[in-house]
Amino acid sequence: MSALFDEKQLRCLEALLDTLIPPDDFPSAWEAGVGDYLLRQLQGDLADLQTSYGDFLRCLDAEAQHLHKRDFADLAVEARGDLLHRIEKHQLAASWTIEPGKFFQQIVEHCGEGYYSDPGNGGNREQIAWQMVGFEVRG
């Protein structure tokens, strides 16, 4: 699926994005195509962030292992959320090769871009996010 990340990183990315925009009556980030958005952008406008993304995902798994002895993707939703909140507050257990707080903020932005922008960008499949918020394109 992706030349950028190995399977473990992809699993982590999916879990990460789905913690940022989880499923409810409407699809999660991953289900709506935010992964496609991001993988495309990482070959385009965000190409200079490829390594940082890889590092972040690796460190995120390391952090989860440190705290819970599991990969990030294997944690319950609440535990994933708690862990991300700790990262925002810079409460880190593992040693990080990247300054995680700031980079996490960027990931949050990218996730929203994929979810809420036009489907032409790869996310917001079948305008599902627009249906959710009530933005209808007529004309």
């Binding site: 989880p22 409407f26 991300l84 959710m132």
Partner: peptide
């Protein structure tokens, strides 16, 4: 800005 609260705020 993230999590279910953010998504549902948008909705």
């Amino acid at each position: 800005r993230w999590g279910l609260a953010a998504k549902q705020f948008m909705r």
